[in-house]
């Protein structure tokens, strides 16, 4: 872990330059530029709002569109950063075969640069909140911590996936499928309190309901999405109980994923 931070600090010039290259390159020669990052969640918000008008999902006192958009903000970040993170090493073949520098730079940049899109989406959330007269409270100070938390989750996937993708390109193919499944396993379309109500209050799965709920919240996005909605829209502190299972998993997964990446890194230039 310290190794990671030290390596990143030592190659900070390169890190910043490559990050700038990543961002600049994506939007060079595109008219809408960075606003493409907003278009995707906006579209999904519209689709979900239409779907919701058929099935009826209770959103409490917060307008459904705001609720969905707030949920989509961390989700889009996770989805985009992992998809790009996984192909970040194989996408830089030329560099990997010619120069040595700590390879973790690639996944870190892939994840890090997506924070810009997240920031833009946060602006939209704030605008929506202002439009609907939802006050912003002090609890919003949790946002940076939550962003860091999702980033760690993204990095855990990105490190492991990027390294494995060097050997088996199947990973990059499988990821979009896994992500689209995960989207429905995350409280985006529906708010978390509906799940809680079904499993913890009504206990629809009988005595195992509580375990099912824990299993459900192993997904790091479950707790974070809910937390984003709580701190921004309700001015309430995050629900740590729903984040605990994923926190445990991340605590183990992240160092493992990084260790695997560093081990595989030595043979990148031979197999890539």
């Amino acid at each position: 872990m310290l190794n990671l931070i030290r390596n990143l600090y030592q190659s900070r010039t390169l890190l910043m330059t490559l990050a700038w290259k990543n961002v600049a390159l994506r939007y060079k020669q595109s008219f809408l530029g960075i606003f493409w990052a907003l278009l995707k969640p906006l579209c999904l918000m519209v689709i979900f709002s239409i779907v919701r008008s058929f099935v009826g999902i209770k959103s409490g006192d917060i307008p459904y569109s705001v609720l969905v958009f707030t949920a989509l903000m961390p989700w889009m970040f996770f989805q985009e950063s992992t998809s790009e993170g996984v192909v970040s090493v194989t996408g830089n073949t030329a560099l990997i075969r010619k120069v040595y520098f700590p390879r973790e730079i690639f996944p870190v940049i892939a994840v890090g640069t997506k924070i810009i899109g997240l920031g833009l989406n946060l602006m939209i959330v704030l605008l929506l909140m202002a439009w609907h007269h939802i006050p912003l409270g002090l609890q919003a100070l949790w946002v940076p911590v939550l962003v860091l938390y999702v980033s760690l989750a993204s990095l855990s996937v990105a490190f492991f996936g990027a390294a494995l993708n060097v050997y088996y390109r199947d990973v990059a193919q499988a990821l979009p499928i896994a992500l689209s499944l995960l989207m429905y396993l995350s409280p985006i379309l529906y708010p978390l309190h509906l799940v809680k109500e079904k499993l913890l209050v009504q206990e629809i799965a009988g005595p195992f309901s509580e375990w099912y709920y824990r299993l459900y919240s192993v997904n790091p996005l479950v707790g974070t999405i809910d937390a984003f909605q709580k701190v921004l829209l309700h001015n309430e502190p995050p629900d740590f109980a729903s984040m605990l299972p994923s926190a445990f998993v991340l605590l183990v997964l992240f160092p493992l994923s990084y260790a695997y990446f560093k081990r595989a890194e030595r043979y990148f230039s031979d197999v890539i």
Partner: peptide, 27 residues
């Protein structure tokens, strides 16, 4: 390392940008 021609070059970037990019890549 004297990297192979254009390995670190990004075609869409200007010469100036590429100098900074390549310089950073070379440490």
């Amino acid at each position: 390392p004297l990297i192979e021609v254009g390995a670190g070059f990004v075609p869409d970037f200007t010469g100036r940008e590429n100098v900074y990019l390549n310089g950073a890549i070379l440490g």
